[in-house]
Design a protein around this nucleic acid. Structure first.
Lengths: 202, 202
DNA sequence: ACCTGAACACCGTTCAAGT
DNA sequence: ACCTGAACACCGTTCAAGT
């Protein structure tokens, strides 16, 4: 594929797809998803407004690819944990990494779970990338519970953990809670303790 | 020829604001937030495309008022619980009502926590309506914990509960989980049991 | 194969003008 | 005060044409 040389001023840029994607990614954080237009993205890259259609079916597909990138980064962030730490500390670290990712990339995070991806934009890569993120969480929980990753307990606990973490991240992003990720994670974990003590006491 | 069809064709409809709001609400579930245009809403109501600007500052403000309506309905749904039930069953019922609301009004629910509301659209009514919903949850948890609604324990536990419930609702809406709300609620609650047993065991 | 330019059917928003 | 119509600056998407 030796189309490497970047010839300036030619009509044929080559390698356009990733350039469009990264331009879109940059603009996403600047203007938000609603105002992210194909025309603005192409202009930023320096091609005509219709050039994107040779690489993405439409705007929705470009957006879907942004989501794929997001899920991949998220999985990576969760995977990057201290192998020496005790199991429950690993879970705490992954939760923190998750919330930090959401906080650092609010527009992208919302897009990943946003309405824009419904139905037709459900590209196979997207489902796969999302499952990979979920799988990372399952791994941690499997270690914590001392059960097989495939087991029902792990699946169920991972679901609970994902619900919790996603909800927390969403609330943090929307400034329903003031800043400081670490504190929120610890406080909500503490909150669950209260709740479950009360439940088992009842 | 102008549009003559308007029986009793007064140019002055009066009461336009609520009509626009309910038209928008109806269309929201049909076409989604991204495609909800002021022009389409006004056409549906039968007024000129610019009429909305005399009642809402702009599209964002109309959307914000939809969110307010959503939070009010959500608070109402959570408040409508069996006063005879034991405390932890009340919590379960409120969680179920929450998830059902989200499932029944996916576009509205997403809008309520969506990116569209950031910053300038943060109308005072919105914050107030959101706090009312949160307050409903706090009431239930205060009873469950047997503490004052103002206490730190209740606030913290409510935060955890809200994170969990919101996360679960989001995942259900996005079909990350297949249908059946009741099962998910019970399964995830079960999942938390696994998690916390493991944590306190470690 | 990859990209452009014109064209079409939409948008949100402003503003002068009508009632 | 409440609403309209024209106008402006945008959009996404299609298509014939250029390289």
């Amino acid at each position: 594929m030796a189309k490497t040389a970047r010839t300036r001023g030619t009509y044929h840029v080559g390698n356009l797809a990733p350039q469009l994607l990264s331009a879109a990614r940059a603009m996403l954080d600047e203007v938000g998803l609603a105002k992210l237009s194909l025309r603005a993205v192409t202009e930023r890259v320096g091609v005509s407004s219709t050039a994107a259609y040779h690489h993405y079916a439409n705007r929705a597909e470009l957006v879907a690819h942004l989501a794929v990138q997001g899920f991949n980064e998220l999985a990576h962030a969760m995977a990057d944990r201290d192998p020496q730490a005790p199991d429950d500390e690993k879970l705490r670290q992954a939760t923190l990494a998750y919330v930090r990712f959401a906080r650092a990339n609010p527009a992208l995070y919302q897009l990943m779970f946003g309405t824009e991806l419904g139905g037709s934009a459900e590209i196979p890569e997207l489902k796969q990338a999302r499952e990979a993120s979920f799988g990372e969480l399952k791994k941690i929980i499997a270690e914590l519970l001392g059960k097989d990753v495939q087991s029902a307990e792990v699946r169920t606990a991972a679901l609970a953990g994902w619900s919790y973490t996603h909800g927390l991240a969403s609330l943090v992003i929307h400034n329903v809670l003031p800043a400081d990720d670490e504190r929120h994670v610890d406080r909500t974990l503490q909150g669950f303790d209260y709740l479950f003590k009360a439940r088992s006491a009842g």
